[in-house]
Structure formats: C-alpha cells, structure tokens
C-alpha cells in the first residue's frame, strides 16, 4: 500500500568532479561522479542528487557530460540541481539523461519557471529545492537563496504551497539551522511542510546517524531523506541505514 521511504545520497560536483573530501578507499578514483554513483547504487541508494557547484560556464558544460555518463551506467533515478536558470538549461540536463531537475534560486526569482518546466516535461521532473532558516522575528521559517547567502521575503510554508501549485513534483527541503550539525533533521520544519503540501517532501540537513532517518520519516512525515557527509565519510552506509529502518518497521526497499 505504501511506497518505500527513499534514501538519497547527494554529491557536489565542481567542474565535472565530485568535491568535498570523500573517503572511499576502495575506489580507484574518488572524484569520479560515475564511479561514486555506481557505488551508491550498489549500496541500495534509491535515488541520487547531483548538485553542480561549478562557478564557470565551462564547468556547467562539463556537467552535461557528467549527466550523460551517469545516465549511461545507472539504473536508478537521479536529480541534477545547481545553476539551472531556464527552460533551455532544463532541456539540456534532462535530454542528457537526468530524470529530474532541481530549481532553487531561479524558481524564487522567477516562479513561472516551475510551471513552464512542469508543462513541458511533466511535474515529476521538477523538484523545487528550498533552503529554510527559522526567523524569530516572523515566527516561522524564511526562504534563503544563492546557496543560503541571501534572505528573501518569502516564508517557507507559503513558498512550498505556491511551488506545489505551480506544478513542482517534489520539495527538497534543506534546514540551514540543522545542516552540518549532525543532530538530526529539522523535524518541525519537515513536518510543517509535509503537512502543507500534497507532493513528496525530501528532508535534508542534519543527518548524523540511522535513527535520524527514522525520525524524519515517522515524526517529520518526510517521504525521502537526503544526506551527504555521513555517507561520504562512511560514518554509516545506505545499507546500514536501511537495515536499521527495516528493523524499526519503516518500509524501505
């Protein structure tokens, strides 16, 4: 009756190479996105997210090649985000073989981009990524853009609803308060957004151990959970997290 809860490793790619110290001694080349993708696929990852953090035009072009190679070798869905600002950018990435594109700053600056993308490729292709930070002044979470550097006037719950209404197929929700702390996902935020929209919500930011994933699914009502460093630094593995979840009665594949 229920879909499995998804575990999604996230890889930062710069100029075609995975960056952020990744500890995979058994890999010939720890910076090769294709090799890492294959590694996570074998571990049972349900999906992958590639975040292009290239600063240059050349780097962005390289990303298309990376997407092609990953798509050629990988038999699980994957999402590409970072630097996607137009329908043309989306076409380039999706035609190269990505299953979904993730829009963040560009969607906030130009919400119509969501409906254009959804109209052209289908809602299932469009992920809207939201960077959220709690704001005492307004008593709720505020939307940040430009990699968390710029505060906007938008409130997270309202923006999530608007994005869903425009045709987003999923929300990738990152808590800036929890990110990097390894104390668990922001359950209040995740639950608030999950209950506000009728599309899947991917919790992100704060994963430190397997029990945090259980919290995100059970208490945070997330449909999927994303993590980077705990998988990269082998503090745990996708397989370990899934075994734990299975024991605790959470449906995973």
């Amino acid at each position: 009756m229920t879909l499995t809860k998804r575990i999604i490793p996230c890889l930062d790619v710069k100029e075609g190479r995975v960056v952020k110290g990744i500890q995979f001694v058994q890999l010939r080349d720890a910076g090769d996105p294709v090799e890492l993708a294959r590694f996570y696929d074998q571990q049972g990852a349900d999906e992958l997210v590639f975040l292009d953090i290239s600063a240059s035009v050349e780097g962005r072009k390289t990303m298309v090649e990376v997407v092609k190679s990953v798509a050629s070798e990988l038999a699980i869905p994957f999402t590409v985000g970072g630097g996607i600002n137009s329908l043309e950018d989306m076409k380039r990435i999706l035609r190269a073989g990505a299953d979904k594109v993730s829009l963040n700053t560009a969607a906030v600056l130009n919400p119509e981009l969501i409906s254009e993308g959804a109209g052209y490729f289908g809602t299932q292709c469009i992920v809207v990524a939201i960077d959220a930070k709690f704001d005492e002044e307004i008593g709720t979470w505020r939307v940040y853009t430009h990699g968390g550097r710029t505060a906007t006037d938008r409130k997270v719950i309202d923006w999530a609803k608007e994005a869903a209404g425009l045709g987003a197929g999923e929300i990738l929700l990152t808590s800036m308060d929890s990110d990097g702390e390894k104390n668990g996902f922001d359950l209040k935020l995740t639950k608030a957004v999950s209950e506000a929209v009728s599309i899947p919500v991917i919790a992100s930011g704060g994963a430190g151990n397997a029990s945090h994933f259980e919290d995100a699914f059970v208490n945070g009502k997330a449909d999927a959970a994303l993590a980077a460093s705990i998988f990269h630094y082998k503090e745990t593995s996708v397989h370990e997290v899934k075994s734990y979840l299975l024991e605790r009665g959470v449906t995973v594949r």
């Binding site: 879909l3 197929g169 999923e170 899947p200 449909d223």
Partner: peptide, 11 residues
C-alpha cells in the same frame, strides 16, 4: 487524501 502521482519504489 493520498499523494498523486504514484512516484517512488513499490513492490
């Protein structure tokens, strides 16, 4: 209510 599309891994 439940979510549509049916998107994800199912047995």
């Amino acid at each position: 209510t439940y979510k549509v599309p049916h998107m994800g891994w199912n047995k």
